[in-house]
Computed example of a mutant assay.
Amino acid sequence: MSLNPAMLALRLLLELTAISSFGICGWRAFDSPWRFILVVVLPVAAAALWGTFAVPGDPSRSGAAPVAVPGPVRLVVELIVLFGAAAALWIAGLPQWALICTAVLVIYHALAYDRIAWLLTTAPAA
């Protein structure tokens, strides 16, 4: 189910929303000059975390893994980035969007149960 083109498109939108949410948080949550730095640093850090740690042969990605990790570690990274984005929206003073984001993430993960099962059973990287 998780490799269905519609699910992959939804996953891409969730990833882009997550990256954007960290930027929104950096801009809205800080009034100091730090906001100009955080609006760039937070999304870049989230994108780096997302793109760096991967399971080799992940069918939803290119299969390449800059830093190979076992499936459960990748699942934790995904949950931190995606649900962290909902928290970032909450911190940014957008609780409605945070709740909508959380609801969509819960529904996505319920539908992508096969990916979660695969990640949980993937052996550690060699």
Rank of each mutant, 00 (worst) to 15 (best):
M1N: 10
M1L: 13
S2R: 01
L3E: 09
N4W: 12
N4Y: 07
P5L: 04
A6L: 15
M7E: 12
M7R: 14
L10W: 15
L10P: 08
R11C: 05
R11A: 05
L12K: 13
L13F: 13
L14W: 00
L14C: 10
E15H: 13
E15Y: 08
T17C: 06
A18V: 02
A18E: 01
A18F: 06
A18W: 02
A18Q: 03
S21V: 07
S21M: 10
F22P: 00
F22E: 05
G23D: 01
G23Y: 01
G26V: 04
G26Q: 01
R28N: 06
R28P: 01
A29V: 02
A29M: 00
A29I: 01
F30I: 13
F30P: 00
F30C: 14
D31K: 09
D31T: 09
S32Y: 06
P33C: 05
P33K: 12
I37R: 01
I37P: 02
I37T: 14
I37C: 12
L42Y: 09
L42V: 08
V44H: 02
V44A: 15
V44C: 11
V44I: 15
A45F: 04
A45W: 02
A45P: 03
A46K: 00
A46S: 09
A46G: 09
A47D: 05
A47S: 12
A48Q: 02
L49Y: 03
L49W: 01
W50H: 12
G51M: 06
G51S: 15
F53M: 13
F53Q: 06
A54V: 09
A54T: 09
V55A: 12
V55I: 14
P56G: 11
G57F: 10
P59N: 11
R61K: 15
R61E: 14
S62L: 12
G63D: 11
A65K: 14
A65N: 05
V67K: 01
V69A: 08
G71E: 01
V73A: 13
R74F: 01
R74Q: 02
L75S: 08
L75E: 10
V81W: 02
V81G: 00
V81L: 01
L82I: 07
L82H: 09
F83L: 15
G84S: 09
A85Y: 05
A85N: 00
A87N: 02
A87E: 07
A88L: 05
A88F: 05
W90N: 11
A92Y: 06
L94M: 14
L94P: 00
L94F: 07
L94S: 13
P95Q: 08
Q96A: 15
Q96P: 02
W97G: 14
L99M: 13
C101A: 15
C101G: 06
C101I: 03
T102Q: 03
A103E: 10
A103T: 14
V104A: 10
V104Y: 04
V106N: 03
V106H: 00
I107T: 12
I107F: 07
Y108P: 01
Y108L: 06
Y108Q: 09
H109R: 11
A110G: 08
A110E: 03
A110S: 10
A110W: 12
D114E: 12
R115W: 04
I116Q: 01
A117F: 04
A117M: 12
W118Q: 03
W118A: 11
L119K: 05
L120D: 02
L120W: 09
T121E: 15
T122M: 15
P124K: 05
P124D: 14
P124F: 10
A125Y: 04
